[in-house]
Simulated scan of single mutants.
Amino acid sequence: MEGFIQEMLQLYLIAMVGFAVRKTKILNEETNYVLTQLILYITLPALILFSLNITFSIDLLKDFLWLVLMSAYILLLSIFLAIWMRKRSQLSKDKKSVYEGLIIFGNQGYIGYAVIFSIFGEQGIVYLTMFNIVYFILIWTYGIYLFTRDTVAIEWKKIFLNPGVLSTTIGLIFFLLPISLPVMLANTLESVGKMTIPLSMILIGSLVANVTYKDIPFLLKNKYLWKSAIAKLLFIPLLLLPFAAFSIPFSLFAVAFLVAGMPSAPTMSLYAQKFGGDTLFASLGVLVSSLLCAFSIPLLYFILHLLY
Rank of each mutant, 00 (worst) to 15 (best):
I248V: 08
I159H: 11
S251R: 14
W226R: 05
T24R: 13
S191C: 09
V255D: 06
E190H: 15
Y12K: 10
P217G: 10
L181W: 04
D59H: 07
S118A: 13
I103N: 02
L77M: 11
I103P: 04
M184A: 15
S228V: 00
P298E: 09
F80S: 12
N222C: 08
E100C: 10
I137M: 09
L81D: 01
N32P: 02
I173G: 03
Y73I: 06
G164I: 02
A82F: 09
L233K: 11
I14L: 15
I125Y: 03
A82P: 08
I137C: 05
I139H: 11
S269A: 13
F105T: 04
Q10G: 15
F160T: 07
V208Y: 10
F246S: 06
F80G: 14
I104H: 08
I197L: 07
F136W: 07
V288N: 00
Y135T: 03
K25G: 07
T151C: 12
A114D: 11
S57T: 15
P242S: 06
L239S: 09
G164H: 10
Q273K: 09
I104S: 02
I236K: 05
I236A: 08
E2D: 12
S92M: 04
A82Q: 07
F302D: 01
K95R: 15
G171C: 04
F131W: 01
T43L: 12
G277K: 01
C293K: 02
K87D: 14
S180P: 01
E7G: 12
A114H: 00
A229S: 15
I83Q: 13
L128R: 05
A229F: 12
S228K: 08
T55Y: 10
T55K: 14
F243C: 02
N107R: 05
I204N: 05
T196E: 13
Y110P: 00
K62V: 14
L234G: 13
R86K: 13
A114Y: 00
S180A: 14
I5D: 06
V288S: 05
F50A: 13
L252V: 13
I42M: 15
A245N: 14
I154C: 03
V208W: 00
T212I: 12
L300P: 04
D150W: 11
A260P: 07
T36L: 05
T31K: 04
L61H: 04
T148R: 06
V134T: 11
G124P: 01
S290T: 07
S57Q: 12
G101S: 10
L176I: 04
M85V: 07
T279K: 14
V183Q: 15
K23D: 01
L60D: 11
A256P: 03
L220F: 10
S290W: 03
V98G: 04
L61Q: 03
V165N: 05
L240I: 06
N53P: 13
L241Y: 02
T43V: 10
A229E: 12
I173F: 11
Y99T: 05
A265I: 07
N210S: 14
I103F: 08
I236Q: 10
T168G: 11
L69D: 00
I139W: 10
